[in-house]
């Protein structure tokens, strides 16, 4: 009996996991790998002429170097904006997640719901709404003018010439706003998992609440911060909506360039090469980040 059961399990083991994998693998193959290969082909091609939509595969690796050479500043700007937005998301999102996880009590679900509620509106609409809020005659500037803060904000480069819309403040602010929930939720989940008795233990071992937080709670919530960082930084660095509506011509990000190359200049080769360079840089950045701050040991 036992022998037979074991054999049967082993036989099942040979094909069942693969059968279950198949739909997902097929999906990835069709909608990820194949498009990627098509994109790669474009990235290594040259157009036969400008509007025919025909590209000849010439293995023109210069597409990549051109992409970096011509749009280096937009790359740098994108990563800088995304990086600052990510840090802001941590600074704003961590205390929020901490509050909900530890003090939320029976309002936990309500509070989490409020974090997610903006998602019920379209991304585009939410972003465009900020053009009204941050507009030159909008409420935000009215408040800062009313408090005579605009001069100070100008000096701090938060506003430019008393304006906020179409500045980097607006773009970074928009990115931070739009991606904040992607930071809050994973941090919340990781905080929720932490045994709060560890906090007692730390206090019992002569730690002030501050030291208990930094030595115990924060390190243990790092997997959430890590996940939140990826969920925020990666889409933010490829984003073009915020720069398009909230930024000016000096705040355009690499996503805008790619969109422009694809849809305005019809230069699929450059656009594809840019996309690949972006993917490559993000992948490398994520790997380095994972190596430096990877916390997989903790995801017990």
């Amino acid at each position: 009996m036992a022998r037979g059961g074991e054999d049967r399990n082993q036989r099942k083991g040979t094909w069942q996991p693969y059968a279950m994998l198949a739909p997902g693998m097929l999906w990835l193959l069709l909608f990820f790998l194949v498009p990627m290969l098509i994109l790669l082909r474009y990235a290594l091609s040259e157009p036969t002429d400008r509007f025919s939509g025909k590209y000849e595969l010439t293995f023109r690796f210069a597409n990549f170097t051109d992409a970096i050479g011509d749009f280096g500043s937009q790359f740098l700007r994108s990563f800088a904006y995304a990086g600052i937005a990510t840090v802001l998301c941590i600074v704003l999102g961590y205390p929020l997640a901490y509050f909900i996880a530890t003090k939320g009590g029976r309002y936990k679900n309500l509070l989490l719901g409020l974090v997610v509620v903006p998602f019920f509106t379209s991304y585009l609409v939410r972003t465009i709404a900020w053009t009204t809020i941050m507009g030159d005659n909008g409420p935000l500037l009215a408040i800062s003018d009313g408090l005579s803060l605009t001069g100070l904000l100008d000096a701090l480069k938060i506003t430019t010439n008393g304006g906020m819309l179409q500045t980097q403040t607006a773009v970074i602010g928009g990115l931070t706003y739009n991606f904040l929930p992607f930071m809050v939720l994973p941090i919340y989940v990781s905080l929720e998992k932490i045994d709060l008795r560890l906090l007692d233990a730390a206090k019992d071992l002569y730690s002030t609440p501050r030291r208990a937080f930094w030595k115990v709670i924060f390190p243990l919530s790092l997997p959430g911060v890590f996940a939140g960082t990826l969920l925020t930084f990666i889409p933010a660095s490829g984003d073009f909506v915020n720069a398009q509506f909230l930024g000016g011509p000096n705040q355009q990000m690499i996503g805008n360039v790619i969109q422009n190359q694809f849809f305005k200049l019809n230069d699929f080769a450059t656009a594809a090469a840019l996309s690949f360079v972006l993917m490559f840089i993000i992948t490398v950045a994520v790997l380095v980040y994972a190596r430096l701050f990877g916390t997989d040991e903790l995801s017990v």
Binding site: D195, D200, K203, L205, Y206, S207, P219, V300
Partner: peptide
């Protein structure tokens, strides 16, 4: 007096060891 100023220490029920 808060716990971190008391000179007693606790062995917790599930030990509450710091996993990291």
């Amino acid at each position: 007096t808060p716990p971190y100023k008391r000179n007693v220490n606790t062995v917790f029920q599930q030990y509450a060891l710091f996993p990291h």
